[in-house]
Amino acid sequence: MEIKQTAIAGTLESSDIQIMLSKGQSGIQIDLESDVKKQFGDQINAVITETLKKFGIDHVKVKALDKGALDCVIKARTIAAAQRALKTADQPAWEVL
């Protein structure tokens, strides 16, 4: 699937994560900023990557600003950003959930 437009989801509140997706050419490139990157960076990247793959997104630039989000939040924000980026926000992809 192609990213049709840059999209964002999430806030910078504590316990949330803001995910921004924009067009990319070389795989899923994640630029993660997090105060707990050392401890949970790999896990956060894994959740984002896995969720994007379920949408069939292979090439995308991801900017993730984590404020201590749990996996379920990371997944939810990634799904929202992906659907906005694919312009499919009006057809929720239930099977991905």
Binding site: T6, I8, L12, E13, S22, K67
Partner: peptide, 18 residues
């Protein structure tokens, strides 16, 4: 600060300003 800037950014994104 995060709340204000986050909201500004979100609103601009909604206006397709990325």
């Amino acid at each position: 600060f995060n709340a204000i800037v986050g909201e500004l950014v979100n609103r601009l994104f909604q206006q397709q300003v990325f």
